[in-house]
Write a protein that binds this DNA or RNA. Sequence first.
DNA 1: ACCTGAACACCGTTCAAGT
DNA 2: ACCTGAACACCGTTCAAGT
Lengths: 201, 201
Amino acid sequence: MRLTPALIASATLALGDREGEKAMSMRRIAAELGCDPMAVYRHFPNRQALLDAVADLVAEEVPVPDGREPWDRRIETLLSGMRSAALRHPGIAGHIASRPPLGPAGRRLAGAMTAALAEAGLRPADVVRAFQALIAYSAAGLRMAVDAGSEDARRQEVSDALEGMLDGPLPIVGSEGQFAYGLYLLLNGIRLEAATARQGR
Amino acid sequence: MRLTPALIASATLALGDREGEKAMSMRRIAAELGCDPMAVYRHFPNRQALLDAVADLVAEEVPVPDGREPWDRRIETLLSGMRSAALRHPGIAGHIASRPPLGPAGRRLAGAMTAALAEAGLRPADVVRAFQALIAYSAAGLRMAVDAGSEDARRQEVSDALEGMLDGPLPIVGSEGQFAYGLYLLLNGIRLEAATARQGR
DNA sequence: ACCTGAACACCGTTCAAGT
DNA sequence: ACCTGAACACCGTTCAAGT
């Protein structure tokens, strides 16, 4: 069977889904494909480049929202779409959190997002800054979700650290609801900013 | 020289400052201390626990803001203090971004932060959610700063991906200004939320 | 009982040697 | 010219053997 970048990437994704992040080593990937570890290096310069390709494969699964929806609804759809796609592929989710996909699929999503922000009424320079703030926040939320799933001890530690300062139980770290709340704060901030920009026009 | 957890942690921090993240391996740390690699395991159960202790050492450097300052100013001081302390120690900054410090120093900062949020007028449940959103955002900003410093190629890639969608140059990914903008959006969101909570009271 | 270091089970990547 | 796999320079951690 002839190797191609696409074939290597999808085999790596499947391996990660099945056996987790640590299973996606060059040696294990090669074994999965039944080839020499070095054969992979003929298609990708290094492991990171391969994982970037796998991440973009996941970005392909994210639906681009209908352009007739309001801009804030579209941003919510895009970001929670990326988040749930990543969580469907736990092996690569950690990599996605560190390096949001920038291949063809990633750029398609970035385009939809910046379009929505421009439509919100932000100045071009602020579109980029708000874009990066939203990506940064989503990446962090994804990382917390990944860590929370794999490290119960950490969740306990966070809980212990905060419990003393507050009454009531700690909401689950990295949960969907927690993610939505921060996104809501950011979108509120953007709305306020856009209103100010519109007035100054 | 007798080994102690504090001595190991500060030697590890110094090593990371001098030679970067990858130099902080159990073997290199032991060499730095002139002891057997296994000696470290008598004071820390594993490498992650040691790095957590190093991270808390950095949190000790962050000044706690004056309680008479307004709540939003205090949050800015705390988060940018943590950010610049981490960036002064590039070896451990990546670890801090993944696992915000929760040792004694980390808890002190968390306490100051939740107090500021409570004073802003958020409901207790929202204090925790806003706290986590702010931490998540700051961690992501720190990660972007660390990556931007070490990976010019990635910055170029992000720039290429966005340049096509916008006119004008891309603001530096992970820069102080970029970080401040997202924080500003979040604080605006919190102000709006607090105002709503206050009205419902 | 405490401590050591050899050994286990891996890594990503280079590079010389084969075809 | 293309491909392979041995080898390099590492890892974190376990555990048997020594004192």
